[in-house]
Design a protein around this nucleic acid. Structure first.
Lengths: 138, 138
DNA sequence: CTAAATGCAAAATCTTTGCAGCCTC
DNA sequence: GAGGCTGCAAAGATTTTGCATTTAG
């Protein structure tokens, strides 16, 4: 019996500086970030990192359910780590910063709010206003 | 004194079939429509109407505050007539149809939900689930 | 070494804009 | 008629993809 070269069936992904840094930037943020923010922040530790790599990595992390997309009612797309549980966001209209909310102020009276026959499974909420820093600065 | 030709200062916009139809399509919808939906529906009464005209008219109507943009948490941009008052939307995850809600199930406890120092001025809510037709079809 | 990951640039989307001809007013 | 409006096509903006090269394992 001969020794067939073990066919390396490596399905796993590789660990790279780029991916590590992109993950880290998202993980250490206090709220969801835009692609541009992620791109700019990763430049500091991994100069030359391409925007395509950011997009590719974001899609990967999303499929791996390590991060999730947050699309604000303004149309702005942002990314944050998943596993934060049910929560919503506060969007400061002055500095544009987005904060995570701990509480959910929504109580959905299933039929009432919509009309008979609708089944509400989930909801998305975004609050707008001014954050403490912008109020102070005003 | 001579008679200078009265300079026609017509700042107003003109009434055209295209604009009429785009307005009408939005006004007669039961919920916010996508650009494609508006485009397709107008083709029926005004064949040849270009997509650029749809975009231009949507921007016009928006500046005139006759319609407003609705961006769903999926990233889908839709348009609906304004003057509907404070309301939210129900998005059917099966047929993708969007319905207007009459009731607002959100009671924001200003400080509580966010933390001290935040001032909540407004909010956006989208409910997800199944509409009556899709439940029936299931 | 081998194949996955990267960076660059080209391609694919979606939306806006320039321009010649058309149509309101 | 004059100037706004339209349709077409080109230009932007954003995200994805192809490919040669680099790099992790």
């Amino acid at each position: 019996m001969n020794h067939p070269k073990t066919p390396r069936v490596s399905l796993g992904q590789r660990k790279t500086r780029q991916r590590d840094e992109i993950s880290e930037v998202i993980r250490s943020a206090q709220g969801p970030l835009t692609v541009q923010e992620i791109y700019e922040r990763t430049q500091q530790s991994v100069p030359g990192l391409g925007i395509a790599t950011v997009y590719r990595t974001l899609n990967l992390l999303q499929e791996a359910e390590q991060i999730q997309t947050v699309i604000l009612p303004t149309g702005e797309t942002r990314y944050e780590m998943s596993g934060l549980g049910h929560h919503h966001h506060f969007h400061c209209r002055s500095c544009n910063e987005v904060y995570d909310l701990d509480d959910c102020p929504v109580t959905v009276q299933t039929g009432a709010a919509v009309g008979e026959g609708f089944v509400v499974e989930t909801h998305e909420l975004t609050l707008y206003g001014l954050c403490p820093e912008c109020i102070e600065a005003a």
